[in-house]
Amino acid sequence: MREWMQRWRQRVDERLGDPIWWNDVLQLVKTVLAAVAAWVIAASLLELPQPFLAPWAALLVVHATVYRTFSKGMQQVAATVVAVVLASVVGRALGLDAWALTVLLAIALVLGAVPWLGAEATTIATTALVVLTTGFESDVLIISRLLDTAIGVGVGLLVNVIVWPPLRRHTAAKALDRIDDQIGELLVDMAGGLGDGCQDEDVAGWIERTRDIDADLDQAWALVRQAQESARLNPRRQARAMRNPEQWHGLLRRLEQAVAETRSLARTLGGQRSHRETWGEGFADPWISMLHDAGRATGDADPDALLDVRARLEGLTDALRSTERSAEWPVYGALIINLRNIIDSMDRVAEAQPIGGPGLPLRVPVRRRGTS
Rank of each mutant, 00 (worst) to 15 (best):
G270L: 00
R267H: 09
R232G: 07
V203F: 01
D218G: 15
R267F: 04
A284K: 07
A260D: 14
S264Q: 13
R209D: 06
R263Q: 11
W221F: 15
F283T: 02
W221G: 12
R267P: 02
D200T: 15
G282Q: 12
A239Y: 02
L291F: 01
G315L: 07
G250S: 13
R267I: 05
E201S: 13
T278Y: 13
R273N: 14
W279M: 15
I213K: 01
P286N: 04
L265F: 06
A239C: 01
E314C: 09
T262H: 05
S264N: 13
L252H: 07
D214E: 13
V203W: 00
L217W: 11
M242S: 00
D212N: 13
G295K: 06
D212R: 15
D200L: 14
R263D: 07
G282Y: 10
G270W: 00
R243Q: 09
R312Y: 03
L313M: 05
R254W: 06
A297Q: 02
A260V: 09
G270Q: 04
E201D: 13
I213Q: 02
I213H: 02
D212A: 14
D293Q: 12
D202N: 05
A294M: 05
D285N: 14
L265H: 06
E314V: 11
P245K: 10
D300K: 03
P303K: 05
M290L: 11
L255P: 05
A301L: 08
V259H: 04
D293Y: 08
Q228T: 10
L252P: 06
E256D: 15
L233N: 13
G315W: 05
R312M: 09
C198T: 08
T298Y: 00
R243Y: 01
I207Q: 04
E261P: 10
Q226E: 15
W206N: 05
E281A: 11
E256P: 11
A258M: 04
T268G: 01
Q228G: 04
V309A: 09
W287H: 07
L291E: 03
R236N: 01
T278M: 11
G271Y: 02
H275Q: 06
L233T: 08
Q257D: 14
E208R: 12
L233R: 13
Q219F: 12
L313I: 02
G205M: 06
Q238W: 04
R225Q: 14
Q272D: 08
E277A: 13
D200G: 06
W279N: 03
R237N: 03
Q228F: 06
R236V: 03
A222R: 15
P245C: 13
A294K: 02
E208C: 11
R296T: 10
A297I: 03
D202P: 00
L269E: 00
G271N: 07
W221L: 14
R276P: 05
N234D: 05
A301R: 08
R310Q: 12
Q272T: 12
I207P: 04
A305I: 02
R243P: 00
